[in-house]
Amino acid sequence: MSALLSASNLTRRFPGNRGLLDMLARKPRPVVHALSDVSIDVSAGETLGIVGESGCGKSTLARCLVRLIEPDEGNISFDGADVGSLEGPARRKFNRAVQMVFQDPYASLNPRMTVGSTLAEALRVHEIVPAAEINARVASLLDLVQLPATAATRYPHEFSGGQRQRIGIARALAVEPRVIIADEPVSALDVSVQAQIVNLFMELQERLGLALVFITHDLRLVRHMTHRVAVMYLGRVVEIGPVEDIFTAPRHPYTRALISAVPQLTPGLLRGEPAVRGELPSPLSPPSGCAFHPRCPIALPQCAAERPALDARGGTWPVACLRADEA
């Protein structure tokens, strides 16, 4: 399977703020390293999960993939062609092919437009169907996301969070994309509704053969619905591979920590000691060497000095840990 959408070596820094005193002291402007050297790819019909704690760069990655944010370094290619330089109609063609579903279903719909006009606008701008067929297509899009056709004449505030997320999905699907980037699409929803939306994603993906990048901090979702998973820590991918393999035998200590932190319903499986210590360091001043070393239970002295590359290291999938081959 060849990659449909791939990003290689993406780096994105955001300038931080410095106070007046720092300016007078001529301290350099602090820089947040949101993404450092991130490479991922996704193929048609495949779901790539991206997991990590808040602030690890997941959302920045999502926004880079749809070109809402331009990366400082690295490039993104779609269907084999670089998309970084696309402008005008070519960029719109890319936009049409790569759509996004947002985290907050309350903010991602224009509150002053009916659901029908929101969907119709996307259809009209990209000339998906002739003008006479727009209403019919709106109805079939609503049907696709399991909303009644009467939803078209109503406003976003008349819907629940889960229903709004369905509308957001319908809007993304309106332009017949080949890739969907879903940035924590269910984390703002109730658990009962989460399951419905997740199932909708899986069903749609299968039916439409979409490539799906599913960003979440919920590992259970990743295991349930993705084929491959990339684990991110402080703007870097630390482990990427087939989801079942990683869940059965995680090779990076951070992945192990994440997996063991998933709440279990079996009382006997309660573990004694925590697998990870301390808090996520500030991305303003990431630790030297391997960024995970201050929290790592198996860190060696050289971990503070040397940053491990993302490499197979004797296994079948890449991992960025000096001790990966020992486990």
Partner: peptide
């Protein structure tokens, strides 16, 4: 929703 508009081109 503004970001969504931009993603939609």
């Amino acid at each position: 929703y503004v970001a969504a508009g931009r993603v939609l081109g």
